[in-house]
Simulated scan of single mutants.
Amino acid sequence: MVTHPLIDFRTTSYGGRSFFAMQPIAPGIQLLTCEAPFAHVIYKDYRREVCAQCFAYAASVFRSINDRRTWSIRSCREGAESVWFCTDNCRIVWESGGIGPLLAEMNAILAKSQIATRKKAKDGLRGYDSPDTIFPGRPDVQITQGYIDKAWAEAEDLASSRPRLSSYCSTMNLEDMELEIARSVTSAIVQRYVFDHRPTNFSPSMIATLDPWTAVLDLQSSELSNVQLRPYVLLAHLRVHAFLCHSLPKHLRQYVPIVRALLARDTGNSFGIWDGDDRDEMLGWGVWVSASYFNHSCCPNLKMTRTGRTMRFTTSRPIEAGEELCISYIDINQSMAQRRRELEDSWFFTCRCQRCQSEGVDEAYQH
């Protein structure tokens, strides 16, 4: 990870690792740039409206021009999913890279596989494994890390047998949101595959700098907290794992073991892909790895902006030496109770930033 010389990377006692100012920093200084997400997905309803390369939203661009909502430039290759772009330049950039075209092929495979498994489930085909029995999903069971580990061990055992896996998937009606999760994970698998098949003239130092997967593993896992709050998430993730083991071609199935590690980190480290600064519509989500090291504050000192696939973080006020660099994960114009509830539900922590502590004291004093 390459960082600005004005900032330092430290381990905290409350929020994992985070960025801090090494010296006073003036407002308007760009401190971190994240070029592209390691994993991402655009929701199905927006794929014709969002440029696959730069994430430009057609409805925003053409809001005053006859209510046009879709892009007209398309890449349509045999065996690949159709993909739309805002300009020919975006299409050329996307097609010239190794990741985009391969991902379009994999997404087409996933879509066909979902249709096939749904048809089999609808036709009542049954094998000797049922989604309701092979994985634990009872809401009355106490969720522990051991319980989750056992469930994933059973998932890996299932994936080791192609006949059992096929039988299981023939009973599985994969939900649309589960397919979105599978597409997001597949984007990471494709990146991993392309990186591993990079040109042989890369130096060891370049590989250490470019390897994104090591940085992903350094992100904090929220697997236990997420499943304890939403037990149904575990079954969804196990179904996605089985679906990918069943659907992906052989040369990518070897990367399926990264599924659990990525899903364990996705919830607490992903960013919404919004239609603009007003954040009216969420078009999808992505994991910008180095950006995930910024902790939250209800009085942030950084402003986050997205230009195309690139995420930028700029100081929004003067920052003192030693001060932690923070962004806001939520709408900070809410009450303290609303803010804390949203952060606890989505990021699994109780905010104790300076503003929350001050407002908490004021609230206690008023009572």
Rank of each mutant, 00 (worst) to 15 (best):
A159Q: 04
I148R: 05
S160M: 12
G124F: 02
S160I: 12
K150V: 14
I134L: 14
T144H: 08
E154W: 06
I143A: 11
I134K: 02
E95R: 07
P136K: 08
S161V: 06
K120V: 00
I115S: 09
V141S: 07
D129Q: 04
F135G: 02
A121M: 06
D129Y: 15
R118I: 05
A108N: 07
I115A: 14
R126F: 09
Q145R: 13
T171L: 00
W94N: 05
I99Y: 03
L110W: 03
A153Y: 08
D140G: 02
Y128F: 07
P139E: 09
G124P: 05
I109M: 02
A151E: 13
A151M: 06
S166G: 11
I109R: 10
S167L: 11
T144D: 06
R164T: 12
K122I: 06
L102N: 01
I143V: 15
A151G: 15
F135Q: 01
K122P: 00
I109T: 12
C169L: 05
K120M: 15
R138Y: 02
S166L: 10
I148M: 08
G127Y: 09
A153K: 14
R118W: 11
C169M: 15
A116K: 08
A108G: 01
Q114D: 00
S167M: 12
R164P: 01
A111F: 10
Y128S: 11
S130E: 11
W152R: 02
D132K: 04
S130R: 01
D149C: 09
A104P: 03
L103A: 02
A111I: 08
Q114Y: 02
T171C: 15
I143L: 09
L102A: 05
L125A: 10
S113N: 10
L110E: 01
Q142T: 13
A116D: 12
I148K: 07
A153V: 14
D140W: 11
I99E: 06
L102V: 04
R118H: 11
Y168N: 02
K119H: 06
A121L: 00
M106K: 05
D132S: 12
L110R: 03
S161R: 13
P163V: 08
S167T: 06
I148N: 05
A159N: 09
K120Y: 07
K112S: 13
S113D: 03
S96N: 12
D157E: 15
G98F: 03
R126V: 13
I115G: 01
Y128H: 09
A151W: 05
S161I: 07
S130L: 13
R138C: 13
E154H: 08
S170T: 03
K120G: 04
P163K: 04
R126G: 00
R118G: 04
S160N: 14
V93K: 10
I109W: 00
T117V: 05
E105H: 11
R162G: 01
D132R: 02
K122S: 11
Y168S: 06
Y168C: 02
I99C: 03
A155H: 07
